[in-house]
Every structure is written in C-alpha cells, then in structure tokens.
Write a protein that binds this DNA or RNA. Structure first.
Length: 189
DNA sequence: AGCGGGATTTTCT
DNA sequence: GAAAATCCCGCTT
C-alpha cells in the first residue's frame, strides 16, 4: 500500500480520500465502507484542535501520517480523522460521512435504531457504526482491525468543495469536500 | 420542514 | 467554568 499521498497538505489529501475505502474487522466479520465526505484541518487553521499547539489530546495529530486521530466531543460522541502531512505538522482530515459497501449487518448491530443513510451520514454516526472509540486513537491504518485502502482519485467533476460544518472559527475556509449527488453526504448545499 | 434543547466528558482558559 | 469538528427527540409552524 502506497501512503505517500498522505504526506501532502490536509487541503490536498482531503479530496484525494474521497472514494477510498475503510475496512473494519469486528467480531470475526468484515465491513467495507467508502469515504464520501471529508474536511481538512491544519495548525494554521483556527478551527483545528492543533491550532494552539501540541497538547496531550492532539499528540497523535502531530505524529506520522497514516494514523487515526479519534477525539471525544459534546460529551457523547467520537469523531475520527486520518493524520496527514509531515511529522510535527499537526494536520488531519476529518471523515464526515461514509457509504456502506459490504458488511451492512455489522454496522446495523451498532446502530439498531437507525436505517438507510442514517447509519453513517455523519462523523459521530460512522464512528458508532464502525465501533471507533478512544481505544482506536493512534491506530495504524495499515493494520487490522481497521485499514485505509486507497482507490484511484475520483474525477474532479464529481467533487464538490465548500465550507465546513459545525465549527465557529474560520467558517469561510472552503475545506470541506464531498462526492456530488451521493446520498450519504451529511448535508448537501 | 424547521427550530430548540438535552445529553455528558475532555480540554483548555 | 465554559465551550466543543454532534446527534436525536419533541414541539411548533
């Protein structure tokens, strides 16, 4: 697996991750999902956890690319990022939404009350469906039980670039990317 | 269809 | 002590 692309800036990697797969092994089963929505964050960005420097929480973000940064927020939810950029850069790409390709039953077990797109069309939702918690923070994405599988870049024409969601700082920075017309995108514009 | 509040913990000021 | 890269439910138009 060639992860070299992950060493580029967050704003470059975020659209590149669209269409790529995440493979999750859980309870002896396997689920595969496709990334359909991402957001870029880096240290120069006032909305990023890494903006104010390295802290215990953001330690993973300042590490090597290709690792998973999981944070807990709003008292109830986990969200997951792929660490990108050079070591010490403090950049990451938030996975905001995924589309289930295989192993749907596995995802439903974690979200018994939800159906259809509700299963994985939000950053905290997909973490719940894939059972990504604090324990996965710092996980190497080339290793089981959670692997990132790169796919060929999707056509530029199929990517929509817009401003990010759910933040109060740097709202005008257009670092959110999603696949045009994909029903699993959390919110279309 | 749209708005508003509650849940609930980690982190930093 | 308050805010936070959110989600879900219930009430109002």
């Amino acid at each position: 697996m060639n992860f070299d692309i992950l060493n580029c800036s967050a704003a470059e990697v975020a659209p590149r991750l669209l269409g790529c797969h995440l493979v999750r092994e859980l309870d002896g089963q396997t689920a595969t999902v496709k990334i359909v929505e991402t957001e870029a964050y880096d240290q120069t960005d006032a909305a990023s956890h890494s903006h104010k420097g390295r802290t215990p929480r953001t330690d993973i973000m300042f590490g090597s690319a290709g690792y998973l940064y999981v944070y807990f927020t709003y008292g109830m939810h986990y969200c997951c990022n792929v660490v990108v950029g050079e070591q010490g850069e403090g950049a990451a790409v938030l996975i905001r939404a995924v589309e289930p390709l295989d192993g749907l039953e596995l995802l439903k077990q974690r979200r018994p009350l939800q159906t259809g797109v509700q299963l994985t069309n939000g950053p905290a939702k997909l973490c719940q469906a894939l059972d990504i918690t604090k324990q996965m923070n710092g996980h190497d994405l080339t290793e089981a039980p959670l692997q990132l599988v790169l796919q060929p870049p999707v056509d530029q024409a199929d990517i929509v670039q817009t401003t990010r969601i759910g933040i109060s700082q740097a709202k005008n920075v257009p670092w959110r990317f999603y696949l045009r017309d994909n029903p699993f995108v959390s919110k279309s514009t």
